[in-house]
Design a protein around this nucleic acid. Structure first.
Lengths: 167, 167
DNA sequence: TTGACATAGTTAGTCAGCTAACTATAATGT
DNA sequence: ACATTATAGTTAGCTGACTAACTATGTCAA
């Protein structure tokens, strides 16, 4: 995703709207603002995680495993939940297995399938990363009171409902 | 950016909050919701642009050039405004130049520098892409009234101000 | 004035995503 | 029962970001 360092001013958008009458200035402005803040958040998250030797992909896999009572899941399920292809998940698991945070366990009932297991080291890594992440995130959002958080939730759902119209 | 197909329920977050007391459940929920909607928007934008043979990077370069009265800018300035490295901008310009949407013009005053010029074909491409993009975006955001757009703006600014705390 | 540093753009190599094709195994319908 | 189809995971190769190193040119201070 681009970082959109230089968002258009209203004056620029008005100029564009003269040439392209379909332009809805506040819609464009909201859209770009949303993309920009989200990109900056994502970059900040990566920076935070990289201090612990993780990136978003691997970190998310660990979290998905921790959510399970058995601390295990198949690569296919993990891929679906993380929103990546199975091929990408193979790579993420390779990386995590090499540093000992997860292990591949071969299934007996279906010999095509394997399960990925969160190791003790993987859980220990989360026990360091998550408190740090949660503490930082709390600070990041502290100026947003509960009312604003609810407003945001509603607004995001409205935008989300409109996404099919964009494609 | 991950696609976060499977956001945690409040129940899952409460479970995590037991183990990690710093967890601020509505902050986490807002954060992930924002990232997810923005990612989906970005993917939808790419889908829309790809119908015109563009991706976000190249499209944004064309827009930045069109904003200028001279329809030109240097690669360095474009890189800064698009939030990519100069190396990446070299590649974006290569691609745009190959299909004739921009051209490199060698500067006389500073022989290190070149300027990138939006060609007639580049302007013509924008004149097709932008109305389509604006029309779709208007539809996508149509359920968001002006009041909600202002609320969103305010909320995003608050979150943005908190980002340094996340890094 | 000239040596050190700064700036503009490019090149080479890395990385994490992707698609498409592959192997192995399981499930299914005739 | 067995040929076809579906599923699980991996591999190979592509892409568009990135960093680091490079060439060429400009700037500035001793």
């Amino acid at each position: 995703m681009l970082q959109l360092r230089d968002l258009p001013t209203t004056a620029v958008l008005e100029k564009f709207a003269e040439r392209y009458p379909d332009a809805d200035i506040t819609a464009i402005s909201s859209f770009l603002h949303l993309l920009r803040v989200a990109t900056d958040l994502s970059i900040a998250l990566d920076t935070c995680l990289s201090k612990h030797g993780l990136l978003q992909g691997r970190w998310w896999v660990l979290i998905l495993l921790m959510r399970e009572a058995s601390k295990t899941a198949t690569p296919s399920v993990l891929a679906d939940k993380a929103g990546v292809t199975r091929a990408t998940m193979t790579g993420l698991i390779d990386g995590l297995e090499q540093v000992g945070l997860v292990e591949r366990v071969y299934a007996k009932d279906d010999r095509r399938s394997i399960v990925i297991h969160l190791t003790e080291a993987g859980q220990a890594k989360l026990d360091v990363v998550m408190p740090d992440y949660y503490r930082r995130l709390r600070q990041c959002m502290q100026e947003l009171d509960e009312k604003k958080r609810e407003e945001l939730h509603l607004i995001l759902d409205l935008i989300n409902a409109g996404i099919p119209a964009l494609v």
